[in-house]
Amino acid sequence: MRIDAHHHLWDLSAVRYPWLMAKGARRFFGDPAPIQRDYLIDEFRRDARGFGASVHIQVGAEHGWAEATWVQAVAEANPDWPLAQVVFCDLTAPDLSRQLDRYQTLPSVRGVRQIVGRAPGEDARTGTNALLDDPRFAAGLRAVGERGLSFDLQLIPELYERMARVLDAAPGTAIALCHAGSPHDRSPAGLRDWASRLRLLSDRPQITCKLSGLGMFDHEWTSESVRPIVETCLEQFGPDRCMFGSNFPVDSLYSDYAHVVAAYESLVPEAATFSVFHDTAARFYALP
């Protein structure tokens, strides 16, 4: 059984997603118009043929608790599909402990995500990078780990050095690096710079890397264009610290699910396949 360690679902009548429903807005990943519709578990399961479990990652709902309880209901309604989830929580919030207490009443919850960086242009507008200078964020990361929860980390290479210093305050928190650390500059020089910076994270055993979301910065991607990224992650983290994620439906803007899986299958050595497509995610997110 394969596990998709990074995907999203949304029911636009049940949970509000302001970013998703903004008309005419273009994002760093492209035009969201084709995915401005419901994407429910039945469609995802049809897309993810050959998989048997997955991890839902929070995706910018107006209210994180509303999203989390909806995902929990989806998990309970589909007992034959093990579904874990990573929820949104502001680690700088004064009531962080109360929020985490509430989230941990939901059996599907495994971790938390608060995005540190998406893309240089968007980050300049949103100011999310400022989390790295906030001591409350570092304390929140530590608190998450002390509860046995993990943290999904999304950021860009320019932030790795600052993030590594923040992680010094939370060495016991398991970290899932989203989207191979978002290498947004796909030029040869840009990829060399990303690979060099990535050592700041891959040298830390608490971090596991997701091979996911590589289409967001290269909408015309091919297996050969992402080969350097996949091979670098496997070399630096090792198969036991790499896991596959589709990033659907966002990455459906660029290719279908079967094409994404086939590309990764062609790039991951056969001896590493079971780790990347099952074992690492099963261990990290406590899935069968």
Rank of each mutant, 00 (worst) to 15 (best):
L96Q: 13
V230C: 12
L200T: 01
C209P: 03
C89Y: 00
R125H: 08
F284R: 12
D240H: 07
W81C: 00
G140V: 01
W10M: 08
A66K: 02
G190E: 13
R197P: 14
E158R: 03
A139C: 10
F151D: 15
V55W: 01
E43V: 04
S13Q: 15
P228T: 13
G213I: 00
T126I: 11
F217I: 09
F29K: 02
S212R: 04
S97D: 11
E231W: 07
A66Q: 10
F284V: 06
L155E: 11
R147P: 07
D240N: 12
T280P: 11
R102E: 15
S187M: 09
R113I: 05
A176H: 08
D11Q: 06
M163E: 13
G238H: 05
C178T: 04
V144M: 09
V74S: 05
A33Q: 06
F151E: 08
I207S: 09
L12T: 04
R98A: 15
P269T: 14
I115N: 08
V144N: 11
R118F: 13
R125C: 03
T232Q: 13
A130T: 11
R136G: 12
P188Y: 04
N247W: 00
C89S: 09
P239F: 08
T69K: 05
S266P: 06
R227C: 14
E67Q: 06
P157C: 06
E224V: 04
S13R: 14
F284S: 10
Y257M: 07
R2M: 15
D203Y: 05
A189P: 13
H259N: 12
G148K: 06
E270A: 12
Q114E: 15
L141P: 05
A68L: 10
W194R: 12
P157Y: 00
G127S: 08
P157G: 06
A66D: 15
S182R: 09
D193I: 03
T280Y: 13
G127R: 02
A119L: 01
T126K: 01
